[in-house]
């Protein structure tokens, strides 16, 4: 009698294969929960302690944050983040959009140009940084080439000057990111209804006004996506700094991410580094604000 149960089993539970999709997913969630959120919480906790070389669990409140704010190097890093963010994002957005518009206006050899401009994105940031370090190096780069051609007074030593080194980073980051903006904006421009263009021509609207007042405003969600992607790039731009300037000269091109890594692993100041990390987390979280605002507006 007991054996009669066996044939009643459905196809849905096949114990023979031993494959349980839910178990696989649980494993994945556990890894995310432990590694990602666990580390996050632990870092948050450490930022409230007096940890130095090794983690200590003695809570000292917000002392580390106070010290962080008082550290000139951290303040420089934050100012640099703002410079890199403002100029880098504005530059990439402007250049990328311009390239996309030019490509959209039926330039010849679009495929070739598209891959050329997109190419930097495929390169590792370390290579990008290295390439620009050579280009901007007075001895090996653009300066020596132009002087060799006879322009002996030409001067380009941004990397050597603490006041201008951060702008070398800005240039490299624009060079790297504008291809991404271009490709996203090009997709957006291609999506504009051809009838809208016909109406624009019929009304005799000049091209620049058509882009400035009709086409680009209608792509504001596309532009917002670009900005969010670029902001994320800026906040975590650690490798570009390492490859291009190593934070120098002095600490003039330091960025928050590099500050945190240096203090974690180089300067053995886990408490301060954790505080810096928490602040960076705050920056990242604030990126979501415009995104949420747009989403909410879209629903209204």
């Amino acid at each position: 009698m007991t054996r009669s149960k066996a044939p009643a089993r459905g196809l849905s539970d096949m114990p023979e294969s031993g494959f349980r999709p839910d178990l696989v997913a649980i494993g994945f969630f556990l890894v995310v929960a432990l590694v990602f959120y666990g580390s996050l919480l632990w870092t948050g906790y450490l930022s409230l302690t007096n940890s130095r070389l090794i983690p200590s669990y003695e809570i000292v409140g917000f002392d580390q944050f106070a010290r962080l704010v008082a550290t000139p190097r951290w303040r420089t890093a934050c100012v640099n983040l703002v410079i890199l963010g403002a100029f880098g994002i504005a530059g990439s957005l402007a250049l990328g959009t311009l390239l996309a518009i030019l490509l959209d206006r039926d330039v010849r050899a679009e495929g070739l140009l598209r891959s050329i401009f997109l190419h930097p994105l495929a390169l590792s940031l370390v290579i990008t940084g290295l390439a620009w370090r050579w280009l901007l190096d007075p001895v090996t780069g653009i300066q020596s080439v132009l002087r060799g051609l006879g322009w002996s007074s030409f001067h380009l030593d941004w990397l050597a000057d603490p006041d201008t080194a951060i702008y070398a980073l800005v240039v490299a980051s624009i060079w790297r990111s504008s291809g991404l903006v271009m490709i996203i904006m090009l997709a957006g421009l291609r999506g504009v209804d051809t009838d809208i263009w016909k109406a624009i021509r019929l009304e005799g609207i000049p091209l620049w006004r058509a882009y400035a007042q009709i086409v680009l405003p209608s792509l504001k969600l596309t532009i917002a996506s670009c900005i969010i992607l670029l902001m994320a790039d800026v906040v975590r731009s650690y490798d570009l700094v390492i490859a291009l300037t190593k934070g120098g000269p002095g600490f003039s091109t330091d960025l928050p991410a590099k500050f945190a890594v240096d203090h974690f692993f180089g300067r053995a100041n886990i408490g301060l580094a954790s505080a810096a990390s928490v602040v960076i987390l705050g920056f990242v979280a604030s990126l979501l604000v415009p995104y949420l605002l747009i989403q909410r507006k879209g629903r209204a």
Binding site: D195, K198, G204, Q213
Partner: peptide, 21 residues
């Protein structure tokens, strides 16, 4: 002649209204 100089107006299948205005 340029489309804007032909004394004519046009209505399109997809309406072609300027979306942000």
């Amino acid at each position: 002649a340029d489309p804007s100089k032909r004394h004519l107006a046009m209505v399109f299948q997809s309406y072609a209204l300027f979306p942000t205005m």
